[in-house]
Design a protein around this nucleic acid. Sequence first.
DNA 1: AATGAATGAGTGTTCATTCAT
DNA 2: AATGAATGAACACTCATTCAT
Lengths: 182, 182, 182, 182
Amino acid sequence: MVSDILDAAALVLEERGLAGYNTNAVADRAGVSVGSLYQYFANKAALTHALMEREDMVIERKLAKLEEDLVGLPLLTGLLHLSASCRLQRPALARLLAAESPRLPPSRHASRLTARLESVFQRSFEGTPLQNLPDAAADIFSIMIGLIDSAGQRDGVEPADLAQRLVGSVFGYVDVYVSRTP
Amino acid sequence: MVSDILDAAALVLEERGLAGYNTNAVADRAGVSVGSLYQYFANKAALTHALMEREDMVIERKLAKLEEDLVGLPLLTGLLHLSASCRLQRPALARLLAAESPRLPPSRHASRLTARLESVFQRSFEGTPLQNLPDAAADIFSIMIGLIDSAGQRDGVEPADLAQRLVGSVFGYVDVYVSRTP
Amino acid sequence: MVSDILDAAALVLEERGLAGYNTNAVADRAGVSVGSLYQYFANKAALTHALMEREDMVIERKLAKLEEDLVGLPLLTGLLHLSASCRLQRPALARLLAAESPRLPPSRHASRLTARLESVFQRSFEGTPLQNLPDAAADIFSIMIGLIDSAGQRDGVEPADLAQRLVGSVFGYVDVYVSRTP
Amino acid sequence: MVSDILDAAALVLEERGLAGYNTNAVADRAGVSVGSLYQYFANKAALTHALMEREDMVIERKLAKLEEDLVGLPLLTGLLHLSASCRLQRPALARLLAAESPRLPPSRHASRLTARLESVFQRSFEGTPLQNLPDAAADIFSIMIGLIDSAGQRDGVEPADLAQRLVGSVFGYVDVYVSRTP
DNA sequence: AATGAATGAGTGTTCATTCAT
DNA sequence: AATGAATGAACACTCATTCAT
């Protein structure tokens, strides 16, 4: 049921955009009453957060697997490829959720993801002393989201190609960052 | 008066966020009646567009000056420094306007800015044959906006430091892009 | 509920006239929230159309019965008596609805009524070749509405007397019309 | 000036309909400020009344001339022909003014016109004792307006033909009316 | 648990009217 | 007299949320 509602929310966003994204439409699309929707989600923001979380969950899970096998820069590269291919699955959805998020109260979920990124980032540069990891993680996160979602608006974008450019950007950022970190 | 209303709109956005950004609030904040607001702006979207345009105008003007003196990569670098320092003046405003823009009908202004960026980009690589300039411009634009606005959420970000990392990212992107363009 | 809202709309029109006829007033009068009103009527025009339809329904039903029993001129006469007695039930309402209708988008219902009138008209002159039936039907319709609604502004108008004069007018029109139709 | 504004009001009504008929539009169309409009007309209703009066003035003047030459039924017939040809000059305007009038406070002008009609009516039946002249005048007025304005919605209506049918209707009404007046 | 009708505060927008210049 | 910028009450309509069944 929770899953049905999240599916419906995703479809409503993709089909009608931010303007058509409202709780009644979602409930309709899910073949469920609004009342039921509110049984499972405290309010609209909670629904949106849940959807964001579910969409990111795929990345988080795959990232966890990656962390078992890789370390250092390959791990970071892997994360970027992962993110590109995942977010390009439903590019419009990813973009619309990102566009909605500034209207939402802050959630634990987003910060958990960046925390994760911090960890990956730290493991990538094991040995090198780094400062302000949180800031760097947030920056890289924003580059990643910005670039992928922008590319997602175009048709026929190859995840691999996009990931290459993404790797370029992030390593460009990192080079500066590392070289300036005492 | 137009200017007063735009000032008010900016303040409302900064003080109350997207949720509190409505025409009556803006008119109130400007010490003006709603009717007057609508005398100068056809609708809320027009108001928002005007504010975006005004905020970007500074960048455009400074960019124009830059184009007189610089060419090649220094021009691109200059643009990035420019954008960072301008958008960090009122970081919340810049971020909120960017967040509102997907809800707005497309404007001539936004496309003019990316066209401008394309031109800068092309001038930066004079001599090198490039393909899909629009895509690259859009990508770089998104990296730029994403990174600056993300950094703008933190306190005490030095424009110069941010610009450095921004340059790193963009050149990282470009390196990949150029090397893969036949 | 639909019926309650239509009742309220009719009362608001009668009590406050066109100037006081707004959706909030109707909802208030019906002891219902505006939201409920909009659950049943897509917009104000739809509400007005529905009220017009309901008011005309009585005539349409009675006309259908009449058509079972009568043909020729008696049928036309019957229609005129019918309209007079029905519209005089709530004369102000009939007049105000007619006055509002030019501000409304065209409805299927109004054209259905005139089509009906055309059919009655044609049956009334079976055997006589007539041209431009639609025009004649529209003319007779306007005479009928005009005369009844005008008389409805006065007190103590006897439906039977009014119908007599109405019959006189319409047959006067028809005599000229028929004699000039080749 | 007054005349210019009335011209503009007429044009606005014809070009933009009831929905576009507002004081600012009229002032604009007249090349005059709203303030000036309100210098000559106390409010919007006064403006509309003045326009109605001016449009009917032509009929009134011609009717006065007719009354010098004709008496009895030919006078009534003359009035009907007159009205038909005058109202068909600007059929849309006539219709829209009639549609706006129920929203207006009652005016002396309309009653003056029907009073005039009463007088014509009485002269038409000199010798015959008639009762309830005001009612009859109002009824005939409404038949006249209704039929002419309805016909005015069609293209290529011949004033003479319309007048014929109008004469038929009115005399049909009158026949009944006279025969039932003791 | 599920329903969905009902709610009503809130929002964008219009336009008749005023009044300082 | 003329201007037209300014006013703000009023209105149509939306949608997140509730609660009786």
